[in-house]
Design a protein around this nucleic acid. Structure first.
Lengths: 233, 233, 233, 233
DNA sequence: CATGAATGAGGATTCATTCAT
DNA sequence: CATGAATGAATCCTCATTCAT
């Protein structure tokens, strides 16, 4: 399993964009269409372009080096924009990290919804969810590990932003709630608490599995079995 | 529950405990104690004293402020020793943090062994273990949270030191193995993997519980139930 | 003679010269000048200005106080720039010192070529060379002494940079080689070796002469006589 | 030639003493005899012993690592004595270095006097002197290079101590003076100045020769020829 | 005379952020 | 909107020296 790998596959696409300097000289209309909105002026076109490049670079570096080893300068440089541009798009470094984190959460969310009909039984649901998570992790090595970084290690004060852990815990909580209503899950379950337990288990287990280079299928099956037994009525 | 509190209630008590236990210190000069615990000559006594004060200060600050917000000189100052003394006892800041981390792991280990006969059935065992963990966490607020800090956030390279997560995961793994042999735990269990899952779950669940100020007893019972169902034959 | 004076008489003149010559700077951005010496854009102009100020300050301090008594922040302060700017222009302190050293070597080189037609007979050549060296030393008191500092005292590892001693030894070696070919110098001469001997002699003799405040003319004449006798066919 | 080598031959003897911990338990009388003076009390015996070990360690480290890379602690440790003992024997680090420097100067002096009758003609004298210097350098690799370190790089103020450069320059000056009186050397020679030139030349030439691993005999012969021509009537 | 733990001024360097262009 | 030179507070760590034992 690859929850914390440092390589990259889908990364390439993003990087290619970063490296493609010519792109910003393209006809604006094409890009605007991509963004799905009204045709942009040259200025906002460029701004969006910059942000995309910065996000791609930030993800790459946060994943490869971690938060503290990545300087805003590195991100700007990797993105091919000036150092100042960074602060045109992010309040500060932490803001940028959180943006990365949220992007990853969004992606996983979308990924899960696209790849798996999360409507079936508890067994099926858990298995599909875990499969989706591990598949995403394979396609985006290291991203989950980085995105799940404990924010309290980075910032003392509360940022007021919802971290991936919380979003994912909630996803699980909602599912469990649904299963409880359907009589599939144990009725005395504290769904919220369980959501956090599951996310914690996946995070730690994923990290362990990656380090030990365990077989993905076996991991998914093992975890599914455990979770199902723990949760089922 | 108090797994990640930042205050310091039983601080004094904890420090006193630290003091008492430091006789088994890792400073080479302390090896004299090994040879029959002679009253110790002046020099090595002073050194031990310094180390004890540094360790206590380090623990206090790492817990209260976290790794990155704690400077070596803060620790020295809090310990009432000179800046240089810090580096007489620790290679660098990370080394000091790891020492803290190991101390915490040792303490919890001992605490668990002293307070709970971990010999009973799976249900009893899990309940006792969780109770011990949460009790330790009450008496040493924030210590577990700090000690479980993901090392990869602090240091890029491998330190070669066994982190608390791994130690605790192993403790659980051994127990599970025993229960498997005794026919109490599911025989198809990957004990090692499960150990990590449990530690991850406890860590994340503990943090959540603390934030939400959940009732300790309910947490222990809820987690026990979940774990037992997941693991039992 | 003034080879190792610590004052600074013609400081201003020297700095002005530095300013004028800096167009051939090694900062990559300055390469614009190479392409026709355009008036230079704002950013690179500022950067060049900073570097010039830093180089001037570094020279002044290295000469007055020596390498170990000069802190990067002293240089920055004297240059009227921030601490960080120093590291925008130099890898580290040693890099800055070597830059100073190379600048001095360049200056002397140019000085010698401008002030003295090094084409004549062995006697004339040596006399002119020595005169040029001592004149440069008068105009740039202490610079030669500082620039000839033995690098091995400052850095353990090899820096891979050619030190002034070597450059100057080579200049002498080439001249000697020429004189050998012209039949003016002894044919059994090891020109390279002799180059080093001469530079060593000048360095030590210069330092001695300065300390004893010897008459410059007498020194030049005395050294010329010795060198000529040693080298002439 | 080996003027600046870092290996060691005669070094071994000294080190052996350093390592021989038992030595200080020997009968005092024997050692006293060696020192050539009245039988020492136990205390002064030990003190002398400590100093010898410190000097040996200092020489070794100053030669191998240079002044700035050698800490008093390193010397004490290598000498097998406590850190404080260092300051029982030397005012400070510089004092220790100067002691090393003087020891080396004494040694070379003695070596030259023992190995070469410096009484003959100018040619013979110069050749013998150079031979002695290079032989000493072979037997004490790196020592001359280290001992000739420019003190002004180490200390700003004047130490009031006569450095090896000066001592050696004087030796040469005296010889030249003698040869002038005997009509062997050019009568218009500034002997003092020439002494410094020669020492400078030897130092620089030696360093060059070592780096290039030149043949010793050729170096001696080449230098002799040059010096003789420069100095002879 | 010997020790080695303790010291803290001092140093080199970094990096998140700003702002003039 | 973009740039990248400039910044300087902040950080980790060293090391010559002292002094209680």
């Amino acid at each position: 399993m690859t929850m914390e790998e440092t390589g990259s596959r889908t990364r390439e696409a993003a990087e290619a964009a970063v490296l493609d300097e010519k792109e910003r000289d393209e006809a604006p209309s094409a890009k605007a269409a991509e963004a799905g909105s009204a045709p942009m002026t040259g200025a906002s076109r460029r701004k969006l372009e910059s942000r995309r490049k910065l996000m791609a670079a930030a993800r790459k570096l946060f994943v490869e080096r971690g938060y503290h080893e990545t300087r805003p300068q590195d991100i700007s440089k990797a993105a091919g924009v000036g150092h100042g541009t960074f602060y045109l798009h992010f309040e500060d470094k932490l803001d940028c990290f959180l943006a990365f984190t949220e992007e990853a959460a969004d992606e996983l969310h979308e990924f899960v919804e696209q790849h798996h009909a999360v409507a079936g039984s508890l067994e099926e649901g858990i298995h599909e969810l875990l499969t989706a998570v591990f598949e995403y992790s394979d396609e985006n090595p290291g991203v989950l590990g980085a995105a799940l970084t404990d924010i309290s290690v980075l910032s003392t004060g509360d940022t007021g932003r919802k971290m991936p852990v919380d979003r994912w815990a909630e996803v699980w909580a909602e599912l469990l709630e649904k299963w409880k209503e359907e009589g599939e899950a144990a009725s005395d379950l504290d769904a919220r608490m369980a959501g956090y337990l599951i996310v914690g288990a996946i995070k730690q287990g994923g990290a362990y599995g990656y380090r030990r280079r365990l077989d993905r299928k076996r991991m998914i099956d093992g975890m599914t079995k455990l979770f199902v037994r723990a949760l089922k009525k």
